[in-house]
């Protein structure tokens, strides 16, 4: 079997897709976000990522696997960061 991409690329692909989609939807965000709100969202996002866990098919740290029964949802974090970047790129202020 020919493999053009690295092994287990499926662990990284969702993170990239979530990031790009986060940017996409972030461009539709309007209003101003204060620094305190930004920190709140990131903090809650990290907590939520640990609560949601990663799918059982991920086996590496890239995919969110830390140890048995303990993992984090990397696409969730990347989507949240993407939303902020999208907001910075094109989000409205009204």
């Amino acid at each position: 079997m020919v493999m053009l991409l690295p092994e287990m690329a499926g662990e990284i692909a969702p993170i990239i897709i979530a990031f790009l989609l986060g940017i996409f939807f972030g461009t539709q965000l309007s209003g101003t976000i204060s620094r305190r709100t930004t920190l709140l969202i990131i903090g809650l996002g990290i907590i939520a990522a640990f609560l949601f866990e990663a799918p059982i098919f991920t086996w590496s740290l890239f995919g969110g696997y830390i140890t048995e029964g303990f993992s984090f949802a990397a696409p969730f974090i990347s989507a949240t960061i993407g939303l902020f970047i999208g907001k910075i790129i094109r989000g409205g202020k009204n």
């Binding site: 989609l21 939807f25 209003g31 709100t37 969202i41 949601f52």
Partner: peptide, 17 residues
């Protein structure tokens, strides 16, 4: 606003999984 952004992130997590 935090709730809206986190719900959107959750939706994106769901579709990527």
């Amino acid at each position: 606003l935090p709730a809206i952004m986190l719900i959107v992130s959750y939706g994106l997590l769901i579709v990527t999984g």
